[in-house]
């Protein structure tokens, strides 16, 4: 029996999506299942082969007992919060400023995106040169204005601050780009209406632009948070987790146990734990949004009538 046009197009849509689904599930799903399996196993390599032993929750218990693991979770949380807040706030401020500027608009778009284009290896090199205690520009600058110099990457607090600054410098452009595009799409008439309603510049930003940018801000926060949890390359090259493990982000810790200590079960368990924690955070975020959608409230809710 001949299929109708609508049935045919529906069948076509399903069959054409299938190869991609198979590819994603085949590549991602298989290895992901392997990681989960490894997380619940003791693994050794003998004569070039994996030797599997069921481990139950042993690997997870080991993580909870490992001080460095717990510290890496804490320092990653600090890193994520600091970089997300700083880069989103900076990105927002830059977007607002660039959009207002007439003459520098084009050039600043290009210049501000520049850090994001630079490869992480190069970024690390640039910042090693800036932060170096002897030849670094930063210390020379501090010295010139008679402020105490520091061995930035040599002290624990200094190193944490340094990797936050580097990450913010490197990835604020992404936040800027996302917020700037969203800002350009904000209805200009609504802003003009607010001006006619008597709003000054700050009130336009506070009551109109930021609320209208909220979806973009939330999206940017999510993306930057995920980038923060995954951050690896610049830190690995700048501090390698030191000094004294002070900048051991989770990604660095996993790399260490997986590739240096060859503790595959533990490394996999930590990866699974990380994904679970992130899913939990994203789920919580979505729940909050859902609740807000049911009973909406906004920054200007006070005008009740």
């Amino acid at each position: 029996m001949a299929l109708t046009f609508w049935r045919r197009s529906s069948v076509f849509a399903k069959t054409t999506t299938l190869p991609f689904l198979v590819l994603i599930v085949g590549v991602g799903g298989y290895s992901w299942a392997q990681v989960v399996l490894m997380a619940f196993s003791h693994l050794r390599i003998e004569a070039g082969e994996f030797v599997w032993q069921p481990a139950g929750f042993d690997n997870f218990r080991e993580i909870l007992a490992n001080e460095l693991a717990m510290y890496s979770l804490a320092v990653t949380a600090l890193f994520v919060v600091a970089t997300v807040v700083l880069s989103v706030v900076l990105g927002l401020v830059l977007a607002l400023l660039v959009q207002r500027s007439r003459r520098l608009n084009r050039i600043s778009q290009v210049v501000l995106l520049w850090p994001a284009i630079v490869a992480p290896v190069v970024v690390s090199l640039i910042w090693l040169l800036i932060l170096s205690p002897n030849i670094g520009v930063l210390n020379k600058l501090l010295d010139t204005v008679r402020l105490p110099t520091q061995d930035w990457l040599g002290t624990e607090a200094g190193a944490i601050v340094a990797i936050i600054i580097v990450d913010v410098w490197h990835w604020t452009p992404v936040a800027f780009l996302m917020l700037y595009t969203a800002l350009c799409a904000v209805d200009e008439e609504a802003i003009e209406a607010a001006r006619c309603d008597g709003a000054n510049e700050w009130q336009v930003i506070r009551y109109i632009k930021i609320p209208m940018l909220m979806p973009a801000i939330i999206g940017t926060v999510f993306i930057r948070a995920i980038m923060g949890v995954k951050a690896f390359d610049e830190m690995y090259l700048l501090t390698a987790g030191g000094p004294n493990g002070a900048t051991t982000l989770v990604s660095l810790h996993i790399r260490d146990v997986f590739f240096d200590q060859l503790n595959y079960g533990y490394g996999s368990a930590f990866s699974v734990l990380l994904v679970a924690l992130m899913s939990l955070a994203i789920g919580a975020g979505m729940l909050v949004r859902h609740l807000r959608a049911i009973r909406p409230f906004s920054a200007t809710r006070e005008v009740e009538a």
């Binding site: 609504a190 607010a194 200007t300 005008v303």
Partner: peptide, 11 residues
């Protein structure tokens, strides 16, 4: 119209 989409009619 240029209404503020994130505010209610009263707001």
């Amino acid at each position: 119209y240029a209404l503020y989409p994130h505010m209610t009619v009263a707001e």
